[in-house]
Structure formats: structure tokens, C-alpha cells
Write a protein that binds this DNA or RNA. Structure first.
Lengths: 386, 386
DNA sequence: TTGAAAGCGCTAACAT
DNA sequence: ATGTTAGCGCTTTCAA
């Protein structure tokens, strides 16, 4: 289809204009789809574009439009404290690996500060690669952006330093907006972004009500689905491993779960807080087992913790699902890979990530648009564990 | 520290020049660290920069330097065939999910082509989020780039179409170079990139010898480590689950393993080919168990397959490591999370990804630099499975 | 509806 | 060692 000659220097508007016998301005109008161009000329220009193999120079365009034509995808995480001020413990459980090497390289040197040794970043980075959830968000965004000819600039904001750099990078106009997925509650990034007047869309309801668009799942409905399934199976002694309770997801999944149980006359399901990691799920399960040896149903607030729970249950001689039914949340790859395959609440992460893209792009196209939120419905995926 | 007034419009070189009482050119020189600037003036300019809160406008800079000051991180995958020409089977086992929905949306429309339904992209995307390996490469790159004030543009090239778009995007100068990690052998991307005269660095030796820089692990040494460990434990009947044999990693890990065994008088260790997915590891293990019921040692070419093997072994009543010792490869998070925790060959993925960044950046700084490769040494991480 | 011209902010000759 | 100047390729008034 493209059999043209493509010489060394990339063709410019000028070249196309000459080939079409019109002015640069007209070519620009055609290329940008601006009205008021004679159809005949329009066609001629299109031909010239094809013949020359013209593609707009983004730098030149950005220079005048003041748009970067790029967006940021930031995986955010650490709370206000980190690298430099690791001291104060956060409200709830802390990530174990955090805190080595802090305070290193404060000089602001631009050299050799690697994530592997960067204070506070270790556990953040580890969690991000360990939980398939983040990978799903990223692939969802990338795949949805691709047909639009765009690729996201990927950023991690795992430390206060990294976060500030990200914010100023975006403020400087290097991207037109940001998609952010937080690995932590109390993430100051959303506020920083909106305060700076930048367009952003979140994955998940922000902890504090900040005026920002977001895409979320009807978390409580998901938890309800899990509770009902456990109830239907005839579980009598149901417990739950929650997510971090300072985060909205953690709270919502717990309350949705408890509400359903309470409505069926089973208030006060025992709960132990986890941190969404497999290990925290194991610890929580062990504790629940010790305190409630007669338990026969477990709802873990994500798949990773459910997998950890299964491991511990088996080590304690309990069969899943015969002795204890287990339900996870997310429906990540680990759920299907688990033994037994996990019954879980599915969150259409990739789709939701795509919705984030749409929301942001619409907002950028029409900044006057109001802040919006889109809520997806979860579904129960029944496999073997419950 | 910054207590200046920051008005609406971003300060330009002009503003700084005025503030410092010099010309734009001088400011530019200072900002870009060009020699031949009087130290006193240099200092004055620096002050002015700080006072005004100046940051270079990248679009303007790119326009004249013809550098994008950005790099691509592409996770590549599918071979020449896909979306449009799914017909011919590849040399060895095919990814199972591949091939639904092919031929859809050929019209070249720029709308609504999502990865989830895009032919050939399904299994690719799934594999990418399922294998923590890719996440590690990505985090390694992002973390290493951050101190340099750069963020990679993330791209997936899972179909021929996507690959072409990626190549032309880069050719158009939207990024200065590319970091590529292939999920498939026979990936045409490296060749396409070099043929187009673009700078690129690969993760892993390319299938065919193409003149391109890469970072790799001494795969055979890693396999040797695994073989020796199994031998030391006194395993008598050792088998292996290989990676895809059309890929260099698959080959190298197998030959390194067999060579070591042969040198100890144990040629012909039974091998079954896997595809690096947990499921393929399960299938392979089941087959090996059927054909060699007396096996007592397994080397899986990656952790995911090792986990699958452990599942199957347990289901067949074999205890790990008492009855059968299992060793994986990579040392991803799943290795430590496995029950029992997996003894495995560690690949310092994040570090290696950092090395890719260095290689590419050096190359961009001095294009005359020769093509290089950096090889890392693997280490054996002993846990419980062997 | 189309063209002419100005200028976005920066770097890189070239002059001084 | 510093300043002057000429664009880089594009969009966007403003005229015609």
C-alpha cells in the first residue's frame, strides 16, 4: 500500500503544500480536520499527504498548541512519609521491607539512584510486580490507547521524591494529563494533581473526596456476591481477611460483606486485616484458624491473599473446599492457577482501565466537562474453592 | 527553598536572560552545560533560573535538536503471523488462546480496537500480565530512568499491526530509541528496528544474530547451577521442563542443563517442552510423571512452570522435596510464595533492565559507539524445594 | 474558502 | 566568551 519514496529528511507541511499546490495553512486544516475546506482540495491534499508519506512533527505541533499529546500512567503508592522521613508509623500495618537505605543520596544528584536501593521504593516496587492487578491496569491502558496512536509514559511514584518529580514533570506540560492507580490509601498524589489544575483520572475512589474523576467497581456488591455464595454453600462459621482498612477498597469490601451476613442474621463475622499480599493473607489465615478453629468459609479481599489462605489451610490439614470454602476477589491469573482453582469476584480491570483512558481523553478534549465517575459491576466467577 | 512567584505562563529563556542581564544564548549554554561560559555569569544565570523557576520547554528544544528526549519500552511478542495471517502453525507448541477474533477490524479505523478482542493479542496480553518477569523488567527500567528525569513510553507489540505502528511511531522520531523485551522467539521487531537505523537494546540475545545491543544472563551457567544442585542432593532420575525451544533462552537452559548432566555421566535427561506458563508446566509435569514414574528431580526453565510442576507432583502424591526435588529459574515473587518455597536460579532482572537503559542512553549520546552486549551471572537461591 | 505572515521557545551557526 | 540571528515545523490570527 505504501510504495512511495521516503528520502532522508521527513516531509514537512511545506512539502505537502507544494505537492498539492496549496498553502501550508490549507494542508494543516485538512490534516487537523478543520471545516471550511473545499472537498476537491481536501482530496488533493490527502493524496499529497499519502504521496509524500507525511506525518506531523509532534514537537512543532506541541510548541504552538501547548499540548504534549501524551499522557502519564502513574502507579502511585507511598503515603506522605518515606525516603527522608521514614520515622512515623502509618495508621495500620506497615509493609515489611520498607525503610532500608533511606536518606541516601539526598544531594539531588541526578545520578545512580536506583529503585532497588531507593528508600521506601523496595517494597512498593516489589508489591507492584507481585500483584498482577497492576499489570492488568497497565495492559488495559496501553491496549486501549494504542488504537488512538498514543502510548502512556509510565511513572512510579513510590517515594515523596519520586512523586514530586512526577508532579512537576506533568506540570511542566510534558504530558496533558495523568491516569493514576494507587497502591496505597492516603496517597497525596490525586490532591496534588488537582490542586495544580491538572487533568487526572483515578482507578478507585479517592480516600478523601477530592474533585477528580475516577473509575471504580461496586465493591460492596462484589463482597455481597462472595457472602451470598458462602451462605448458599451452607457455611456456618464465616470469616474474612480484609484489605488495608485505611483504603476505600478495604473498607468497602469489608462492610459489603458484613452487611450481607448481618442481613442474614450473622453479624460480627470475624475479620483480620491483611495488606493484599499473599504473605499477609497467610498470616491472617493462620490467626483466624487459631482463633476460630471451627471456621468453614473464608472471604479474602483479593486473590493473592486467598491463595495465601489456601496454603495455610492445607498446611493445617483443612481441605478446600470440602472443609473450608474460600473466595477471593479480582479474578487475576493467580485465581485460576491456584490449587484448587479459586472461586472469586471478578473485577474487569482491563475494561475499567480503558474507561479511565476515555474519561481522560474526553476531559482533555473538552476541559469544561464535569468531573465524572464510572462504576462497574462485579461478577462472581465460580471455580472449585467455593 | 522555592519561594518565588510563579505566574500563569511558564518562564522562557527570554525571561531568564532578562533577569540575569545576559542573552538567551548564554542562558541556553549554561542550562545545557556547554563550556566557555564565565563562572560569574554562570552563577548569575543559575540564580536567575532558580528565581524564575525556569524549565526548558521540551517541544521547543526537540524541534531544533531533532531529538525527542524520550525512549520507548516495548514488550514485544507475536511472530510474523498473527491478526491477519494466523494460518501457519509455528515450529513448536502454540499458545492455546491465540487466534480468536482474527481478521477483525481490518479497515484501519482508528477507533475502538481493544486489546481484549484484538486478534492474537489476547494470549500475549494475558501472558504478559501473568508472568511477573515482564513486570520486573518494566519496573527495572522505570526505576533506573527516573533519576535521569525520564519516563519510558510503554508499548505492546503483540500483533503485526501493533508492531508496525510501534515501528513507525519510533521512526517518526517520537522516541530516540527503544528498549525491547520479547515474549516470543522469531520476533521480527529487533530486525525491523535496526533496519530502520533506530537505536535499540534488547533483553536477551536475539534469535538470529542481528547487529543490536543486548543484555542477557549467562543462561547455561544458570542451568548448570540447577543441575549441580540436583546432583548434589543425590537425585538419580532427573528430568527437565524446558522453555520454548525456538527461543534462545529455551535452548540455552536446556543445553546448559544437559551438558552438566552429561559431564557427570548422565546423558539424555528426559525433557518436555513447556511455554513458560504455569499451565504448560503442569501439562509437562504430568507427562513426565507418566513416562518416568521414578523421577526424583525436576528442573523447570522458569518459576511459573516450576510452580505448575509442584502442583501436579503433589496431586500425584509426591512430596516436594522429599520425593522429588524441584528447581525453577528466575526467582520471581512466585518462587518465594510457592509451597514449598522454590529453590531457583536467580536472574537479576531489575539490574539487567537498568543495564539496558545505560546501554541505550550511551548509544544515544554517542551513536558511533559499537554494538555491545552485557552478560550477567546467575546465582542459585536455595529454598525448600531442592 | 484560502493564503500570508507571525511566532511558539529553543539551539546553533556566525559575528564579535 | 558573549551576543545576534536565523530558523526548526507547525497552528492561527488576519486579510483577501
Amino acid at each position: 500500500m505504501t510504495e512511495d519514496v521516503r528520502s532522508a529528511a521527513a516531509p514537512t507541511l511545506e512539502d505537502v503544500a507544494r505537492a498539492a499546490g496549496v498553502s501550508r495553512a490549507t494542508v494543516s486544516r485538512v490534516v487537523n480536520g478543520v471545516r471550511n475546506v473545499d472537498p476537491a482540495i481536501q482530496e488533493a491534499v490527502r493524496q499529497a499527504v499519502a504521496a509524500t508519506g507525511y506525518t506531523p512533527n509532534r514537537a512543532a505541533r506541541s510548541l504552538v498548541t501547548r499540548r504534549a499529546d501524551a499522557i502519564a500512567l502513574v502507579v502511585s503508592g507511598a503515603a506522605a512519609d518515606d525516603a527522608m522521613e521514614e520515622a512515623g508509623p502509618s495508621p495500620s500495618g506497615r509493609e515489611n521491607g520498607a525503610g532500608e537505605g533511606q536518606g541516601r543520596d539526598d544531594g539531588g544528584g541526578v545520578d545512580d539512584e536506583d529503585g532497588e536501593t531507593d528508600g521506601g521504593s523496595v517494597s512498593f516496587t516489589a508489591r507492584v510486580s507481585a500483584d498482577p492487578f497492576f499489570g492488568r491496569v497497565v495492559t488495559g491502558v496501553v491496549n486501549h490507547l494504542r488504537p488512538r496512536g498514543m502510548y502512556p509514559m509510565l511513572m512510579f511514584a513510590g517515594t515523596a521524591r519520586a512523586r514530586d518529580e512526577v508532579v512537576s514533570y506533568i506540570r511542566q506540560g510534558n504530558t496533558d494529563g495523568a491516569l493514576v492507580v494507587s497502591a496505597h490509601a492516603e496517597d497525596p498524589l490525586p490532591s496534588l494533581l488537582t490542586e495544580a489544575g491538572l487533568s487526572a483520572v483515578l482507578y478507585g475512589r479517592p480516600t478523601r473526596p477530592v474533585r477528580i474523576s475516577y473509575v471504580d467497581l461496586a465493591q460492596r456488591d462484589g463482597a455481597r456476591l462472595a457472602a451470598e455464595r458462602l451462605l448458599e454453600r451452607g457455611c456456618r462459621r464465616i470469616v474474612t481477611i480484609t484489605g488495608p482498612l485505611e483504603a476505600p477498597v478495604g473498607q468497602d469490601r469489608l462492610t459489603g460483606f458484613r452487611e450481607t451476613l448481618a442481613r442474614r442474621g450473622r453479624p460480627d463475622a470475624p475479620a483480620v486485616e491483611g495488606r493484599f499480599s499473599q504473605e499477609s493473607g497467610e498470616v491472617a489465615m493462620a490467626r483466624l484458624l487459631a482463633e476460630h478453629p471451627d471456621l468453614d468459609g473464608v472471604f479474602a479481599a483479593n486473590d493473592l491473599m486467598a491463595v495465601g489462605a489456601c496454603h495455610v489451610l492445607r498446611e493445617h490439614g483443612r481441605r478446600v473446599p470440602e472443609d473450608v470454602a474460600v473466595i477471593g476477589f479480582d479474578d487475576n491469573g493467580v485465581a485460576a492457577a491456584c490449587r484448587p482453582p479459586l472461586t472469586t469476584v471478578r473485577q474487569p480491570v482491563e475494561e475499567m482501565a480503558g474507561a479511565m483512558v476515555d474519561l481522560l481523553l474526553e476531559r482533555l478534549a473538552r476541559p469544561s466537562l464535569p468531573v465524572t465517575s464510572v462504576i462497574y459491576e462485579p461478577t462472581l466467577v465460580v471455580r472449585d474453592s467455593a
